[in-house]
């Protein structure tokens, strides 16, 4: 199956380590990706829906024009924002028609409502299959204690789960399929604080400190997230959060494709693990000792 690939802005901006890691992992697993290069930022929950719904309808129409109905993201926020827009456009044909008429027609585009938005995480479990993933693992991450951190938008609101409540456990399932150990903690489904980094930095940093601190105290050696915006806050904000709290945290935060990539046998360099703010050296060393 081919997927329209929507990499999002951050995977090549603030988290430039994510895009190449995802492409390498997808290549190794043989996911047929066709990157959409001529589409816009989905609005990330910042832009008003008056603007972002037409932008997203355009993205979906572009995928359809290439004969693709499955759209893969590598970001929880992209998934939630585009998935939410998609629901509105699919559920209300009159709304979709209005957007087609007002915004897309002059580019000779029209969204027919056939696209499904899927995070790489969902795609791996639902389409690719964990057994196949297990079979691709070259270096089981034995003994590595990993805490999952989802990012709000691939868990809530309910509609995003499309009737599959197990989506709230997929990260744990993938961590285990890679041979690593899940270090569960209460904050895994909570907000990372990134959305209020501008409006209320103290609240944002307090959330970072609470979640990374809790995972660390439970024994996690690293955290894995399918959301680069969570990554920006949990990794990039961690030194500030630790300072505000007056403690050291030092919990490396890995992107989902990086964790998968390590298990597939890619090196820390190939996955750009040095591009993180919180050093990932200990994780890289531990993994490099595994065969």
């Amino acid at each position: 199956m081919s997927y329209a690939f929507y990499p999002g802005c951050v995977s090549r901006g603030g988290c430039p380590e994510l895009y190449p890691s995802a492409v390498k992992v997808a290549g190794r697993l043989g996911l047929g990706l066709e990157e959409l290069t001529d589409v816009g930022c989905n609005g990330a929950g910042v832009l008003s829906r008056a603007v972002s719904d037409p932008i997203n309808a355009r993205t979906f129409a572009k995928a359809e024009a290439r004969g693709l109905t499955q759209l893969m993201t590598i970001c929880s926020t992209c998934t939630g924002v585009m998935g939410g827009a998609n629901l509105r456009l699919k559920e209300a044909p009159a709304y979709r028609e209005r957007i087609n008429r007002e915004f897309l027609a002059e580019e000779r585009l029209a969204y027919q409502g056939s696209v499904d938005v899927k995070h790489l995480l969902w795609l791996l479990v639902e389409d690719y299959g964990l057994d196949r993933l297990r079979a691709e693992v070259r270096r089981p991450l034995k003994g590595l204690r990993v805490s999952p951190f989802y990012g709000c938008y691939i868990r809530r609101p309910d509609g995003i789960l499309e009737g599959k409540p197990a989506r709230k456990r997929y990260l744990e399932m993938v961590i285990e399929a890679l041979g690593a150990e899940v270090t569960d903690f209460g904050g895994k489904g909570k907000c990372c604080g990134f959305p209020v980094l501008t409006a209320n930095e103290p609240n944002s940093m307090a959330m970072v400190a609470a979640h990374t601190g809790e995972a660390k105290s439970k024994g996690a050696e690293c955290m894995v997230t399918p959301c680069p915006l969570c990554h920006l806050n949990l990794d990039g904000g961690q030194p500030r959060a630790a300072k505000m709290k007056g403690t050291a945290i030092d919990l490396p935060i890995l992107h989902l494709p990086q964790l998968i990539g390590l298990a597939l046998g890619f090196s820390a360099e190939e996955l750009h693990l040095k591009r993180h703010i919180v050093p990932t050296r200990q994780v890289a060393e531990k993994v490099s000792l595994l065969t």
Binding site: C152, R156, D158, K190, C191, P195, V196, A199, N200, M207
Partner: peptide, 10 residues
Amino acid sequence: WDCVHCYEAN
């Protein structure tokens, strides 16, 4: 603007 729009309220 202090809301993190985490959808817990929903």
